[in-house]
Design a protein around this nucleic acid. Structure first.
Lengths: 192, 192
DNA sequence: ACCTGAACACCGTTCAAGT
DNA sequence: ACCTGAACACCGTTCAAGT
């Protein structure tokens, strides 16, 4: 699926360069995190730095374009879970997927927490994904399985924050899963 | 109080340069966050870049030296709260202070969460502060006011993560306080 | 319409020369 | 023992020239 954050190039060579850049960026981000040198990315893609900037005017634009498919998956998962039952389990499962998505590149948590709004005013894929998660949280609160004082944005921020914890040195993925479980558990409505 | 992370210079001009660097770094970090240019810091202090590196071999060393007094305060607060009663309130108050300390410079959360261990093997001021907090958490668990599955390191990580949330664009301090309250509330032992 | 790559500014880090 | 500042490598970003 094509990202909503960047126009699809019309010329064949431009489309090809875009694809090469995305592949090179994925490799570089995987190895060195989202702060990887953009010069290196351009070199690995076999294009000049100017071409990279033409396709992706900011680092965040490149990062979000690279994970666009993943964010689409998160969005779809959210709508599917909303259609099914189990409001609390849905929140848990979606948050887990959101956190896992953030864990693929070091430094990604900040971009997920504050995705730059696209210039055209449309909602970015990241925004759409987060909205799907927020809808699940709202339902869980309305159904009375999450505490009434839970704010969807707060919960999304905390999920990104847990991803951030996983980016720190010497934290294993198990710690993030445990943090999420402990956290969601603490937000369950008391069975009064 | 002198930091444990760097040797105190013997010569008067060296001690003075160290002080000038700390002041300049504080100003730069306040304005631009902990990623402020070290060249700028050296220039503002009126010394060459080599002098900065001689006093503070890494950026983290400089950052931790600048906030050393603040960390000492956090440490002292921890020991005082441990001597007094109210195990749950003590944890809450200490975490609030820890989070506020992390909020003084943008980007500080990561350093607080993973302070580099000093070469001499001694505990850094940051380590000592965190240990004081961990002791409060352990007591609260033992007294049965926090859930038994709460791990001190997990809680310290979550506090740093909340600080990190506050570093993101468009999050006001009220959000961090609310996050901490919601979080600690969720970790309270059920009054069975 | 798009690409190239030189050019510029900036930054981190080291180190030879100095006092 | 400590300082200076030149030097080097690297990176982000722009833009004139090209196709």
């Amino acid at each position: 699926m094509s990202p909503t954050t960047a126009a699809r190039p019309r010329r064949a060579d431009a489309a090809r360069n875009r694809e090469l850049l995305l592949r090179a960026a994925h490799a570089a981000f995987t190895e060195r995190g989202v702060t990887a040198s953009l010069d290196d990315v351009a070199r690995a893609a076999g294009v000049g730095p100017g071409t990279l900037y033409r396709h992706f005017p900011t680092r965040d634009a490149l990062v979000l374009a690279v994970i666009d498919d993943g964010l689409t998956d998160i969005h779809r998962l959210g709508t599917e879970l909303l259609a099914a039952g189990d409001p609390l389990g849905a929140v848990r499962e979606w948050l887990r997927a959101y956190i896992e998505q953030g864990a693929i590149y070091k430094g990604l948590a900040a971009t997920l927490a504050s995705p730059p709004s696209p210039a055209d005013g449309a909602a970015s894929t990241c925004d759409q994904a987060r909205k799907a998660g927020a809808a699940l949280i709202v339902r869980a609160v309305e159904k009375g399985v999450l505490r009434a004082d839970v704010d969807p944005d707060d919960l999304l921020d905390m999920a990104a924050a847990i991803t951030w914890v996983g980016e720190q040195p010497d934290r294993d993925p198990a710690r993030c899963r445990r943090l999420l479980d402990v956290f969601v558990d603490g937000l369950r409505a008391p069975v009064s």
